[in-house]
Design a protein around this nucleic acid. Structure first.
Lengths: 334, 334
DNA sequence: CCCCGGCACGATAGCGTTTACACGACTGAC
DNA sequence: GTCAGTCGTGTAAACGCTATCGTGCCGGGG
């Protein structure tokens, strides 16, 4: 049943070595030979055994993507960008979920995986988080997405600046009591979250320190969490007149909370989100738009590059620009 | 650098064969030996080479998931369910996108993949679609999600019945001009879409044939598409008073279209969606809720089962119940 | 006391590729 | 006409594991 390269070689009248070289389009092979071998292979719809190929020292032809979530919009969209590039390059994608702060922290089998893949795509995870169990030490090609780390290639946005500009937009509109809906209390495991908080705080303290008050809510980056957080903010003695949400999904929840209180986003309380979620337009949410799929695609390209270029280039840190899209959810205070 | 099972065996004072058996917990090994070997392996943080293991006749320890989209809510959520089960079973997930009717139809390398994985999870794809290039002929374990096929295990919902009940809900409310927003015109490549259309048509023709009129729009299962489709329906001489959308995302778009026309979903035009999208609650959309993540998890479990049970069980077709959740987007006509 | 079956383990032959290394046949330069 | 240098190809040794046999050993039934 199993047809091997030996069979192909015999039928094409060459040695297995030549067959192997021909199938991989190596340079030192007669074009005529390549054509002959390929023809035989096609006729039998033969494909090399990746296992044997890998064992004999070749590449695995696949990369792993580590992500804390699959179904949340941002991550799913990054993955779609990644997938598209990899499919183009005939490289397989191994999906591994790790780093969800809410989930039981199971150390992902990076060690085992490192045998199975040529490189790693690490999405949003702090590379030194314990759960990544020494991913950094592994000298396999890797690219970080949405995070940075000295000496490791990455593609990310300027979270601090984006958050600062978004918040400043609220300040410029005249808001003084500005709330923040972040992910989780305490030190976030996500670098981006910490950066966004810094950006927010900078903007709020500006132009005159103390001129604005700020309040925090925590929405765990989910819609429901955003709703809960907004409710908490509204329950305070002096609720904020504007709220910056660290993700669109939390902003959606906040919108719902407002509606259930008989309030309208933009009219009663201004809202700014972050991400550029598919539905942000439909809900008229002012938000920081980032080209998420493109980020994933870029990272995938860089990883492929790094894999093929064995030459140890110096790691690049790509920064993708974002833009604030103002919609009707943010307006001057009443 | 590379440490092999031979090293482990030597250090544990056993043969490579015994080491291999010990590491795999086979039955005919002294528990004491297992412990000793495992200890040595742990000390060196050794993991078997999957390539070698596979080559020598074992399993690959991974499965492939074929899906037409990654970032759309339904698919991303199915995947998250799948991933969770597979991670539990220490099985790797290979992600492959194929079957998007809008994308260039590249035949996915099922043949190549079949060398790399122990089984296939096929999400929403009609298994006989040409793009699947003989996946059905491959006698590898496989499970269909959201589709059925004779002789192949599957986990799905009763799309026809669910669509019928959803539409009937609109009829019962008193609506007579009921519109449908489907995916694409012509014969859909998705079995589920065809079934939902049948269910819709049955309900509309009931109780008295001809008592209701129906109009079609096509939204390609996207938010923007839904908006466009709704605009088209509203532009007709006698716009429908209620619309059944084949997905929540299209319903969201339809809502937006209504809003831009100064209309309100539920008051002016009733809307029913399909899926139970995370945001359907926040938008007060009446919808057919299906336990999407659970569907993925169930399918993954079945696949694992099928892989371990070499015994050719007769294929099971699991049907997961859905329920209509009525919210304020559907009300009696004005 | 012998034989047989079950048990824990050892030796070894692959599994299907890739990759040195070797080899002959040309080519052009001297 | 010899010699170094390509070029296209063949030979065979890995690659790291598992599967198939085979080998002692022990205990119990005849």
């Amino acid at each position: 049943m199993a047809i091997t390269i030996r069979d192909i070689a015999r039928e094409a009248g060459v040695s297995t070595a030549t067959a192997s070289r021909a199938l991989r389009r190596l340079h030192n092979v007669d074009p005529a030979t390549i054509a002959r071998v390929q023809a035989v292979a096609d006729r039998h719809s033969y494909v090399v055994s990746p296992a044997a190929s890998r064992l004999a020292g070749g590449r695995t032809g696949s990369v792993a993507a580590l992500t804390p979530y699959v179904s949340r919009w941002y991550f799913a969209t990054v993955l779609s960008g990644v997938e598209q590039v990899l499919q183009e390059a005939e490289t397989d994608l191994l999906l591994l979920v790790a780093g969800d702060p809410g989930r039981q922290a199971r150390t992902p089998p990076v060690r085992r995986l490192s045998q199975r893949v040529d490189g790693f795509l690490v999405i949003s995870l702090d590379p030194d988080s314990p759960e990544l169990g020494g991913l950094l030490e592994l000298d396999a090609p890797k690219v970080l997405v949405g995070t940075k780390w000295p000496g490791v290639p990455s593609v990310s946005i300027d979270d601090e600046r984006a958050a600062r500009l978004a918040t400043q937009h609220l300040v410029n509109l005249g808001h003084r009591r500005i709330g923040l809906i972040a992910g989780r209390p305490g030190r976030s495991p996500f670098l981006a979250e910490r950066a966004r908080k810094r950006g927010f705080e900078t903007a709020v303290a500006w132009p005159a320190p103390g001129s604005s008050t700020l309040e925090y809510g925590y929405g765990d980056f989910t819609v429901d969490g955003g709703e809960t957080a907004m409710n908490a903010l509204l329950a305070q003695p002096h609720p904020p007149t504007a709220v910056f949400c660290m993700s669109d999904e939390m902003a959606f929840g906040a919108m719902r909370a407002l509606r259930l209180h008989g309030l309208v986003a933009g009219r009663d309380v201004s809202l700014v989100g972050f991400d550029g979620h598919d539905l942000s337009g439909m809900l008229d949410l002012t938000t920081v738009v980032q080209p998420v799929a493109q980020i994933g695609a870029t990272a995938a390209q860089m990883l492929l590059q790094e894999i093929s270029d064995a030459s140890g280039q110096k790691p690049v840190e790509v920064e993708i620009p974002t833009r604030l899209v103002v919609r009707s959810s943010s307006r001057p205070p009443a």
